[in-house]
Design a protein around this nucleic acid. Sequence first.
RNA 1: GCCGUGGUAGCCCAAUUGGUAGAGGCGGCAGACUUAAAAUCUGCAAAGUGUGGGUCCGACUCCCACUCACGGCACCA
Length: 974
Amino acid sequence: MHFSPQNNQFWQSDFLIDWSSIESKWHKIWQDEKYFDADPSEKKKFFVTVAYPYPNSPQHIGHGRTYTLADVHARFMRMCGYNVLFPMGFHYTGTPILGMARRVQENDKELIEAFRTIYKVPEQNIQEFSEPVKIAQYFHQEIKSGMIEMGYSIDWRREFTTVDPVYNKFIEWQFRKLKSKNLVIQGSHPVGWCPKDHNPVSQHDTLGDVEPAFTEYVLIKFRYDKYIIPTATLRPETIFGVTNLWVNPDVTYKIIDVDGENWIVSAECARKLEFMDKKVILISEIKGSALVGKKIKIPVRNEHVVILPASFVKSENGTGLVMSVPAHAPFDYQALEDIKKNTRNFEEDVLNSVRAINPISIIQTEGYGEIPAKEIIEKFKIEDQNSPRLEEATKELYGKEFYEGILKNNTNQFAGKKIADVKEEVKKWLLKRKDADTIFELNDGPIRCRCGTECVVKILNDQWFLDYSNKNWKKDAHSCINEMKILPEDIRNEFNHVVDWLRERACARQHGLGTKLPWDKNWIIESLSDSVIYMAYYILAKYVNKKQITAENLEDEFFDYIFLEEGNVKKVSANCKITENLLESIKNEFSYFYPVNSRHSGRDLVPNHLTFFVFNHIAIFPKKYWPEEIVVNGSVLMDGKKMSKSMGNIIPLRDAIRMYGADPIRLAILISAELLQDADFNLEAVKGIKNKLENMLEDCSKYKLNIGSNLQQEDKWLLSRLQQLVFETTSAMEKMRLREALHYILYEFDSDIQWYLKRANAKNRTDVSSTLYNALSIRVTMLSPFAPHIAEEMWEKLGNEGLVSKSLWPLVHNEDIDSLSLQSENLLKSTMDDIRNILKVTKITPKKIIIYTSDSWKNKAYQKILSNVIKGEMNIGVLIKSLISDKETELVKKDPDFVKKTVNDILSEPIESRQAKAETNIIDEKKILLELDSLVQKDFGVNVQVFSESDPEKYDPKNKARTARPFKPAILIE
RNA sequence: GCCGUGGUAGCCCAAUUGGUAGAGGCGGCAGACUUAAAAUCUGCAAAGUGUGGGUCCGACUCCCACUCACGGCACCA
C-alpha cells in the first residue's frame, strides 16, 4: 500500500478535536516554562539518554519507538521528583551519507527521485546535497522538528553534532586515552575491497546487496624443481594423506615471483595475491598440460608425488592447483577412478602413476572404514567427477570428520587428536616451517561493487583496532554488565555473550565524516567508535552552545580535569584559557549528572553500540561513572510486516503526527508489545486509541470536585481500585513494562469506571461527580508521561492548577484500600454473572430470583481451607480430616463435596486475592447481596430475595440453599 | 554452520516463584443509542498453548528430542 494522506480514509471523517492545535499550544507552554532544561540542583538527578540519530533520512514510526520509550521514562522520573536530564545529539559520522552525496553528484535518478517524492525534500535543498554535510544538516533539522512535534521532553540547549570542533577534540582525547592504555592497537586486516574505488566494500556497496564474506585458506607449498606450487585447502591436516596434485591441463598458469619465491599459480590467483600484501612480479607462463606427470616434493613428509590432470580443477578457485587426498576427499578419489576408467585418454606413464597410487588413510571416524571417501561416493551413487552430488558428499564427510574424526598414527605429533582441535595447530606449524602461506577468498564470488568492478579480498595494513579481545577489559565488561540493571532481564545473557565473542575491531576508516585519528591523520575514527562515551559530552555541549568553550586552546588536560578530576585547575585554566570558575562549574555539573542512569536503545545495537558503550566507559571513567542501566526495545513492524522502502510501508513520523496526532501514535507504538517484542503498528489501533483519548477528554469536562459528598459502598470500591491501579501501574513503570502500565491506565481503569457507573445508575445516584473527578485526575496524571499533550488538556478541563507534567506521580495510599468493599463488589459481580449464566443456559424469563448465602460453619471451614491452601496443603482427604476433628466445622462430614469445591474456588482466584481474603474478616454476604436488588431490577426487571441457608423461614422449594458456599451463593430462578 | 529469541482464539499480545489458559486490543456476531453512518455502551462466540516424550497431585511455565519462524555473526549505521 502506498501511504499518503489523500488515500487514508480514517482521518477526515471524525475530527472531533483539533490535535494539532492542542499539541502546539502545549509545546509552546512547555518551551516557555523551560521545563525540560535541567541544571544541577539540590534535587536527586536522573540522566536518561537514547542513541542519537544518524541523519541520512527522516525518521519513521520505527525510530519513534526508542525515543518515545525514553521520553516516557524521562517524564515518569521527573514526576517522581527527579531532576531529569534528557538531551539529544546528532551523529554525522559515517560513510552512508558520503555515498549518498556521491550518488547525487553522479545525478543518480533513483535517489534524487526518492528525495523528492518519498522524503519531500525541497528542490533547492536537493541541489546542495552533493555536499555530504548538507544532507546531514537537512535531515538533522527534519528529525529535530519531528522530535519536538512528538512532545519529547528534551533539553535542547545541549544539542550537538559529531562534526563540531569541540566534539572532535573530545574524541581525540578519548582515543589518546584508549591508546595510552594499550587498547588501540595496529595490525593488518582483510576486507572486501573494490580495486577501482580503492575502498572497502560492505553489503550495501555491492550490486544486489551481497555481503562480501570471505574465508581464509591455507596454501601448502609443494616444491617442483626451483618452483613452488601452492595449493589452497581448508584441511591443512590432510597434508599427511596427499598422494598427488591435480592440475587442469587446459589452463595456462603464470610463473610469478612472490616475495623472492617462484610460484606457479593460475592468472586469477596471481591477481588475488597482489591484494594479499605480497609483491607479485610476472615472470612467464606454463601450460597446465606441461605440468602433468611432473614429480613434486611434499613438505614435511619428504616424499615425491606426481601431478595428474583433472577437469574439476577450476582456475578461479584457490591457486588453480589442488592437492589430492583420495582417502578423505571424494573429489580426489573420484578423479583417480575416472582416470582408471578412461585409460584411452591418458599417456601410459600417467596411467602407471595412477595405478601406483594407494589412498593414505589418516583420519579415523566412527561409522567409516579405511577409505571414507570411497564409502561416501558409493553411498551417494556418484559416477564421475562432474557429478553435482560430489559437493554434497564432500560437505557431509568433511563435517563428520571435522567434529568426530581423530588423526591416526601416521600424522606424527598430531596423532590421536581431534580434527576440530588440531586444525589451527597444524596451520601454525606449517606456517612457522614456511611450508605454507594463507590466502583469503570470497565465498560466493564473483561479487561486484556498485561501480561494476569485481571485488577482491584485500589485506589492509596498518589498520587501527580497538582491542576488544583484551582479557582484562572483557573481565571488567562482564562485571559491569552483571552489576548493572538491564531491562528486560532476558537480554543480559546476550550482552555477556557479545563480550565473549567480540574481538579486535577496526576503529578507523579512510573516508567519511568524523574525527581524524589524532596520531595518524590519514584515518577517520569510525562511527561506532566515536559514539560510545558522548553522553559525557552533553555536559560540555551546553557551554559550547553558549560559546563559553571553543575548540581553540582545548587540550587533553581540560577533559582530564572535567571528567577525571585530574590535574591542577590553575594550570588548566591558564593553558586552555577558561576561567577557573567556569572550569569548576562544568566539572561540578559533570559530577552531578554522571553516570548515565539509563541508556535506551533498540535491540539491534546490543552486539555493537551498547556493548561498546559499556567497554569504553570502563576503559575511560572511574567505576562511579559506569552506566547504571540499559533498556533495550524491539523493533516496529507495520501491519505485521517489516518496514522497508521497497514495500512502501514506511510512514514518516511527521506525516503520521499530522494525520493522527502525536499522542495516539505514542500510545499505539507503546501498547502493541512489551519491551523486547517487535511492536506491530497498525492504523486501526491508532484510530481506536485516538477515540479512546477523545472520549476521556470529554469525560474530563463532565466531573468536578465537590466537597462533602457521602461515600457509598461503590465509591469506596472505586477509590480502592484506584489505589490498586496506582500500585500496579507504578510497579509496571519501574520495570519499564510500559505496555502493561498503559493497559491499566487505559483499559482496566475504564472497566472499573463502567462498573461504578452501572452501580450508581442502578441506584439512581446523582452525586458521583466527585468520586469520578478524583479517579480521573489520578488517571490523567498517570497518562501524562505517555500522552503528554492530551493529558495537559484533560488536566485543564478537570479544572486543575498548573501543568500535569509538572505534578507528582500518585503515591499509593494503602489506607484507602478497603478490602471489604473490594470483596463485596466482587461478590456482586460474580453473582450477577452467575445469574446471567443460569438465564442463558435455562433460557427462562425470570419472574423471581432468590439468593441463598451459606451457613456460618461453612465460612469457618472456608477460612481454614483457605489458610491451608495458602500454606500449600490442598490434599482433600487431609483437609476433611482436620475439619471434622474441629467442633466448629465438623458439619463438613454431611457435605464432604463442599471441600473439593471450595478448594477449586480458591485455586481459581489470583494469589493476592486469596491473601486478601485470609487477612480480612468474613464479609456479611447477606447484607452485601441486598445491594443486588437494584442491579437485578435494572438488568432483568425483577426483584431479588436473599435468604441465609440456615433461615428456617426461607422459601426454598427446590432445596437449593444447601449448595451455597462462601462467595458462591446458591441461586434459584423461577 | 554457529549463537540468540520466539511458536498461546481469525490477527496482535498477556498469564507473577508450575495452581481450572484470558487481562486486554483488533476483527466477528447480537442488542442499545441514531433518520442513517461513525463513535460509544451492553452482551456473546472463539484457542487448550508448534510436534513427540519425561518430571509432578497438577505443566504455556521445568527437562529431553524434533520442527518452524525471526534476529545476529563485525568494520555497517
